[in-house]
Design a protein around this nucleic acid. Structure first.
Lengths: 371, 371
DNA sequence: CTGAAAGCGCTTACAG
DNA sequence: CTGAAAGCGCTTACAG
């Protein structure tokens, strides 16, 4: 059956050495078939005889064919729809940055006929997430990026997507054991470990510290925060930390309540507290109090570049912010989906973002680089 | 003359609202001319009558035309040649990272028929730079990225490029007063200022410190290093630092000599030195000595993620490395050139990279993100 | 000065 | 199962 192959091996070689990009029509010519047949084989569209298939595949193996993606996307009028399922946000909030990365990828991919639709939910309300899932499952889409705030319903959604063979990417925090195409986010444990190191080098040895939590967070939502706290504590243990750890639950929007709670701690047994940390993105809540009532005697380490956190960092009410390249998470997440959908290529499954350390002197440069 | 315009304003509007991307042929139809004529106007190729020009421009203004870049680049077989004029490097050295960013852009831009040629020079030898310039000026190229090690000859080259109307981008350190298309690199002064802050918070108040330099650097080469030192000293002044500053000149490749020099300092008046800094990328030279002779009693801050620096950071011989996203510099620099050459769009002229603070705990994640 | 036509590399009906 | 042809949006000779 090889007689069907009208070109010899050496001719193929010649073609290869000859640097010019080889095209589908070249392959067709070399294999003695039409471009339509080559295309069918390239894309597994079937309806090709064993003989021709073997012949074309033989040529393919020899020439290292790379499709011209521009020509492809020009010829296919078909658009690819990607959904971004992320929390809604206000200006200056954490998810705004992730969304900015998504928008950036969106602009770039527009040329390739990739469209992105955002479906938003309330990050403090699991029900709103479930509703968003119901909405999106009715839509036509080929890929989805998921902000993994709510572990359990994300797993449910993932199973459904597995069924439908729709690729999905996680951002923010990872949920292991799922078939996501990729995860983009930090190693939360190490993010906590680093916070402890930064805090410890700024306060006198074995001073007491305060760990604050935000009450409005639902119990089961963020593995991110649990893992950070675990890393934090492990660092303390490793250095044989001997101080006292205080815990408190703060309100995200009731400063009076917070003042009451914190005054109580600081004015009683907590008067030797020299450092504090808060593991989600709103450490400004604590900084608000400290700046007004404690005159920078207490070193605070927090996470994420919310506008209100940055203000406090610049004023010295926060000593370090730990950032995790949210824009990059959004950008890379969308690009990974598009790459897979356009070319079939995969990226590594777990992609840990850098854990960036910000101080008042370097924060002005942090978001200068375009992505 | 408006009668030449066969479509009315409202028809244009209709076309716009109708979301579909408008094409050159749409414009031609709306203006009552051929696509060839529209193309000539779009690209200022001349040979168009005043009337038709006015008519087409009128339509253009109304429809917010955006060319389809994929179709354009598919149709133009013409390739764009960009030169990267950078130092040669060995594995694990600083410029390897910049080069990696360049390669990354290269891969991406291949689709757009952008080709990149590297011309390398010896970063310690101004003559080799000048030779490289001679070589490249004989070539055919449309844009160039320049590693600005040698201030004066870079200025000369820039003037020649201005003459030829060839856009150029600076990376690594900025040279002000030139017409570069863009600069990508850090603010060196702030890079030094931050080094001082990091060092000061790790050593006892007013301990003595050591500033090391590398002898092989040519006197006139790096404004980068001068500026870092200036920032460093200014921070000390600002905190009213009272310690003693020692200076020493080290060899990049003669550890015995360095041992001698450093032993002399540390064993005499320098015995109270608790901190050290080195402003170019090879602080491993000093770390080599400290790790062998001073048992981590001296805190060292350095720059850039050379393989040998990273080793010392992980072993605790360096407390902080300050990094400046070299890959991003290379990548963004090339992309800026390509963008300008393909679409005519400019990026901001001065693009300060983030000043990243690395410790042993976060360095493993630093280069994980693809760019 | 202007337009009709061919071509970039790929995909997609369509006819056989 | 297979191939010839048209088309994606733009550019580029070419003829007039």
């Amino acid at each position: 059956m090889h007689s069907l192959c009208v070109r010899t091996h050496s001719e193929c070689k010649l073609k290869m050495d000859n640097k010019k990009k080889i095209r589908i029509s070249d392959i067709a010519r070399l294999a003695g078939v039409s471009v339509g047949t080559v295309d069918r084989i390239l894309h597994n569209r079937g309806r090709v005889s064993k003989e021709k298939r073997a012949c074309v595949e033989r040529v393919l193996k020899e020439v290292n064919y790379k499709p011209n993606l521009m020509a492809r996307s020009l010829a296919m009028k078909k658009t690819i729809n990607i959904i971004a399922l992320i929390p809604s946000f206000k200006t200056g909030e954490y998810w705004e940055d992730i969304n900015r990365g998504i928008s950036c990828a969106e602009t770039e991919l527009d040329l390739y006929n990739v469209r992105i639709e955002r479906i938003l939910f309330n990050q403090y309300d699991e029900l709103s997430f479930n509703k968003a899932v119901d909405t999106l499952l009715k839509k036509e889409f080929q890929g989805i990026l998921i902000g993994t705030l709510f572990g359990e319903p994300v797993v449910r959604l993932s199973l459904e997507l597995d069924n439908r063979k729709i690729p999905y990417v996680y951002v923010d925090s990872n949920i292991i054991g799922q078939n996501c195409l990729a995860y983009f986010g930090t190693n939360s444990y190490d993010g906590g470990y680093i916070a402890a190191k930064l805090l410890m080098e700024k306060i006198p040895e074995n001073s007491d510290i305060l760990i604050s939590r935000i009450m409005r967070e639902c119990k089961n939502c963020s593995t991110q925060i649990c893992n950070r706290e675990k890393g934090f504590i492990d660092y303390l243990t490793k250095c044989d930390y001997q101080g006292q750890i205080y815990y408190c639950d703060l309100s995200i929007d009731d400063p009076l309540y917070n003042t009451q709670v914190l005054d109580e701690i600081f004015n009683s047994t907590g008067k030797y507290i020299k450092g504090a940390v808060l593991f989600n993105s709103v450490c400004y809540v604590l900084a608000d109090y400290l700046s007004r009532h404690r005159e920078k005697q207490i070193k605070l380490v927090g996470y994420d570049l919310l506008a209100r956190n940055i203000e406090h960092l610049l004023e010295g009410n926060i000593v370090n912010l730990i950032a995790q390249r949210p824009e990059m998470q959004g950008y890379n997440g969308i690009k990974a989906l598009a790459k897979y959908l356009v070319t079939g290529e995969c990226v590594p499954k777990v992609n840990y973002m850098p854990i960036d350390i910000l101080i008042s002197e370097n924060i002005q440069y942090y978001n200068n680089q375009s992505i």
